[in-house]
Structures are given as structure tokens and as C-alpha cells.
Design a protein around this nucleic acid. Structure first.
Lengths: 139, 139
DNA sequence: CTGGATCCCCACTGATACTG
DNA sequence: CAGTATCAGTGGGGATCCAG
């Protein structure tokens, strides 16, 4: 735990580059902290959905598709607690509550795009690898 | 599902930029697939540990600290199946098995650094947000 | 409309013991 | 050395009902 950290250049491709990063003290272990935050089944979708502007509870419920009322509430609370969503209550009747991604969440979203990019570049390769692996197991 | 995707520039800061990205069809929903792969408790640590070169089973077991033999095996199998680790068996006695991160895994590792960077920039903010939130709940 | 409360399931994880 | 097998605990997540 608690290793040193420095600013990260991060446009590299080779094994040597990765070596250099590790030697420089880049410790990707803290991602556990991030993964605990956004690793939930719905967190990312909620951030994306509320990235364009205020979204109401029911809007999100309809948009996310498959999410239960319980998990919607829980995940929203979690994200709000972490400062990733701003919750605004309008004391009207019936009540109206809006959720909106904070700037910090938008940056996280942009960071996620790098992972998305990786996924897109390699998903086929991963799928093929799985097939090969499963085929070998069958034999 | 199955939205369009395009190459990603991804050096932006504003809400408008995020809007532009979403409009352009960047769908960060697939990260679920990534998160299922690396969201495990030990996956990232194993990738990092085996990023510098071949690592033996027992080496990893000692290095990771806290991992059980069972989870080490399971996670290694999972990563191998996805093509993120290469497993090499030397039919000697006693047996010798080496695990090494593939180029694809190294790229993933580099992508994770972006998230790590986000975490480092905002961890204090998140912590403060949590304190505020919890304080409000207490009242 | 926006949740809170409750019950339940099961996948992930850990602990321990055994083996080629 | 490098696993496998088995049992048990925990928590995330779903279903349902209730309430301000």
C-alpha cells in the first residue's frame, strides 16, 4: 500500500515502456478504489445517462432498462456520496428530484473512454482467445 | 446495445466536450465487459505483477499478499482464458509454470493508468464529499 | 413520483485439506 | 511446485410491498 505516485505521460506501446512506468512507481493497485466506486453493475450507465444534463428518477429508471428500483436508489446514493452526481430536490408535490453528473464524473467518464477504446480494439481477440481456450478444455 | 463507435481523441475537460462525444456515438456501456474481466479483486494486481516478465505460481502467491491459493488459480485461469496472460508449463519435476502478461494486457494496463490518474487527482475530493455526505446524514 | 424496508438467492471469496 | 476439492461466509443484486 501507499506507494509513490507521479504525473503520468501514458502514450506508450511497448513492454519496455510498461517496465519504465512500473520502475517509476506507477502503481495501478489503487484502481481497486475506483473499481469499488464504478465497478457496480449500474454506476457507469448512470453517470453516462446523467452526463448530458439533469435527469429525473423515473427517467433514469426507464432509460437504464433492467435496473430495479432498489439498485437505482442505492447506486444513485452511492454516486452522490462520492460526489459524482449532484442531487437536487424540488419540494413540490408530487416530488421532483434531478440527478446530474458533476465535472469530476465527466472526467471519469472521459477516462473510461480509454478503457472503452481498449475494449473495442481487443474484444474480438478476447472472444477468440476464449473460444480457443474452451476448445482446448473440451479435448 | 450495439451503438456506433469511432476513434477517440479524448483530451477534453468540459461538459460540451462530453456532449460531443456522446453525440458522436461513444458508448461507454461496453466497459461492463471490461469490468467483468478486470473487476475481480485480484486481476489487476496479477496483470501488473506479470507485466515485467514470466512469474511463477508461488512467486505470485508470495507477491500478492492476501490472495488465497484458490483465488490465485481461478483468477489466473480467467485471465489466461481471456488472452491476458500466457501460461507456460515446463514438464519438469517438480513442475514449473510461468505466467506472463500478453501485449494486449500491457495495453490494458496502460489504459488503467488513465483511471489511476483520475483517482489520484480526485481521491481527496471524493473523500471530502463522503465526509460531507455522512455528516449530513448524521444530522 | 421518489424512494425506504424486507426477504431471498447466488456468485464471489476465503479456509482448509488433499494430490500428481 | 502447482494445483484440485470441498465447505462455509459475505455481500451484491433482484422482487415485492409499503410510504411520504
Amino acid at each position: 500500500m501507499s506507494q509513490r505516485h507521479t504525473a503520468v505521460p501514458a502514450e506508450l506501446r511497448s513492454r519496455a515502456d510498461a517496465d519504465a512506468l512500473i520502475d517509476a512507481g506507477y502503481c495501478p493497485i489503487p484502481p481497486r478504489e475506483i473499481l469499488d466506486t464504478i465497478g457496480g453493475k449500474w454506476a457507469i450507465q448512470l453517470i453516462v445517462a446523467s452526463a448530458r444534463g439533469p435527469m429525473r428518477f423515473t427517467e433514469l429508471e426507464r432509460l437504464i432498462e433492467g435496473i430495479s428500483r432498489r439498485m437505482l436508489t442505492l447506486t444513485l446514493r452511492h454516486l452522490e456520496r462520492d460526489g459524482l452526481l449532484k442531487r437536487t430536490v424540488y419540494p413540490t408535490v408530487p416530488p421532483k428530484v434531478e440527478y446530474e453528473a458533476t465535472p469530476m464524473a465527466l472526467e471519469l467518464y472521459e477516462a473510461m473512454l480509454v478503457l472503452t477504446n481498449w475494449s473495442r480494439r481487443h474484444s474480438a481477440c478476447v472472444a477468440r482467445s476464449r473460444e480457443d481456450y474452451d476448445a482446448r478444455q473440451a479435448s
